[in-house]
Write a protein that binds this DNA or RNA. Structure first.
Lengths: 174, 174
DNA sequence: CAATTTATGTCAGCAACGTTGACATATATG
DNA sequence: CATATATGTCAACGTTGCTGACATAAATTG
């Protein structure tokens, strides 16, 4: 008999069936996220990279000069987990690390030209897919999509996301 | 020098910087999905299960009597990849397989009572988080969220998602 | 200056989740 | 009977993580 830790007893709602629209959203999220990442995965394969490499390329490109520990904070993985991925990217000439001028313990990470080009391709692919979905669902839906995602990310990660661009278009009715 | 396969040359748009709102949505999707799945992961740990077990429990619960190959079609993994996960679930008494009456090669899979209870807990957790985000972002945003996800899933997977529940509430203005 | 803390790197061992390829078995179908 | 299908299993391997232990260089602090 498997015995889950009897700590949180505040789950009396557990036996309720989930609302159909919530259950549907859960399923959609699974399929949509898989298709979304699969898009980029196929491009990364050509370089011998995986999804972990993509994340490093993305966030180093997003925060040029980020330190290793800064990257670890964003990715929420250990340095031992990052090590082979970052090592391969540096050996392959996609990421370079230069010591910080004032604190020479820190290594500031940058993308090479080649990596920047790859990042643009990856982001362009995902943007294209997302833009198609936005176009299909309409601008109000796109706005709602983003707002729900914002509400979903944990407070610890909120500040890491780019600030919302100034609203423009049909929604800014002054 | 790494050399990507020079097949698709139709990517001239690649050098364009992605629109800020699209880039923002990409980031949000990464953080939101990670937080969303992490929620369930912590519960699964108590049982010695991982995310792969979750997916099997979810889809067997969603399609009682599904065959092994039907499950593989949904998950898009190989039977060798499924084998240890499904094997553990069956040994632990969470999934049972009974031969189909007419075609006895096929094994129809079902959740046990215990697994159904676990599935309800997992789905309830995720529903709660999603419902909170929906409440925070508002019903129109929730609707837009779902519509964008629908547009994102590949056509091959569309039919696997539960049909949209009949619209009710403020959006059905007759 | 000496001691400690911080940032980073590295080695070993392990686990989850997936892959390809090869082969086996039972059943269905022509 | 011959072939195709559904499933299972074994072996080898790869990616992406984990924990624990230890090393080094540089900064900070007493």
């Amino acid at each position: 008999m498997i015995e889950p830790a009897p700590d949180t007893v505040d789950e009396g709602f557990v036996l309720e069936a989930a609302a159909p629209d919530l259950r549907r959203a859960i399923e959609l999220l699974f399929f949509a996220y898989r298709d979304f990442t699969g898009e980029a995965d196929r491009l990364l394969e050509r370089y011998g990279f995986g999804r972990a490499h993509h994340r490093v390329i993305y966030f180093v490109g997003r925060h040029p000069g980020i330190s290793v520990s800064g990257l670890l904070d964003i990715l929420k993985i250990t340095k031992q987990g990052l090590s082979p991925v970052l090592g391969q990217l540096m050996r392959d000439g996609f990421v370079v690390g230069r010591p910080d001028r004032v604190d020479r313990r820190r290594r500031r990470l940058y993308l090479t030209e080649e990596a920047q080009a790859l990042e643009r391709q990856l982001t362009a692919r995902q943007s294209t897919r997302l833009a198609a979905a936005f176009a299909c669902a309409g601008p109000e839906a796109a706005d709602g999509f983003t707002r729900v995602l914002e509400a979903m990310v944990a407070a610890d990660d909120r500040h890491r996301v780019a600030p919302a661009p100034p609203t423009e278009g049909p929604l800014s009715v002054p």
